[in-house]
Design a protein around this nucleic acid. Structure first.
Lengths: 140, 140
DNA sequence: GGCTATTTGCTCGTATGCAAGTAAAGTGAC
DNA sequence: GTCACTTTACTTGCATACGAGCAAATAGCC
């Protein structure tokens, strides 16, 4: 085991994830968003008008990172920050009409891109693979 | 399939890789190196005195990223850039004595960290999991 | 009601990661 | 030998990613 650095699981995970990001980026670049921006829009399509803290929990990004991503999505006109009438500390992240359109397109693309990225892998292998990814993402 | 954004393979891959980086970072932080710096040292322990281009191929980092990482490893005193007598364009990345010591320690830790990170997973599952990671990292 | 602890989103600093472009040095066709 | 092409490492600009620390607002305890 570990005869070479290439056998290190942390290296293998990082490189597979990088390949995924490259592929996902290539599929949504024409919408003018990056891989992470596209994922954030997908989460907003699933649950709109959320606080930054709630969104950060679901996308698993810390608040410093999310602030920058939301800045850029706001500049692109896909997202608005609105005041939360129930808590003046927090804000509500809201998709604009344009943002909703793009988010729907991203959801459509993601279905095809998931299937295409995994096309060489059998159903059983894919199920095990995904469950292992989720298990490792929890605690390692 | 893809009832939720959490089911997106690109999201799952990215988050599992992030968990791996967090774990690996926690195991080598006392050596004063980051996750990527530690991996680069592991590759140098396997193959010392290489050109930047060769190292970049093995670690799968582009030259812009690698330049910064080598700058920091050099500042830490773990690595030296030497002139290549056979090609004045290129440089040879060399571990210092201190770098060799740290790299050996990193190799030792990586064995234990790999096993520990995957401890809940059976041998067969691990083998399949790793082969899928490598396959996806190739071309997607 | 008033004080303290927590929550919220932000900024700053550091470290990847990649696209694009550069200067210096080497290679090859003629 | 000369000129075009390539290779090498570097730089710049942008986008994550996170630790640490901040001010404003809220919640909880007395």
């Amino acid at each position: 085991m570990l005869k070479k650095p290439e056998d290190c699981i942390f290296f293998q995970l990082a490189k597979a994830a990088q390949a995924g990001v490259r592929y996902w980026t290539s599929r949504i670049a024409h919408l003018n968003v990056t891989a992470v921006q596209g994922l954030v829009l997908a989460f907003l399509a699933d649950e709109d008008r959320v606080t930054s803290a709630r969104l950060g929990q679901r996308v698993q990004l810390d608040s410093a990172t999310l602030t920058g991503i939301l800045d850029r999505l706001e500049r692109l006109g896909f997202v608005e920050r609105r005041k939360n009438p129930h808590d003046r500390r927090s804000i509500l992240i809201c998709l604009t009409d344009e943002g909703k359109r793009v988010a729907r397109e991203i959801l459509r693309i993601s279905r095809e891109a998931n299937a295409s990225f995994l096309k060489e892998i059998s159903q059983e292998e894919e199920a095990l693979f995904r469950s292992l990814l989720v298990r490792l993402a929890q605690g390692g």
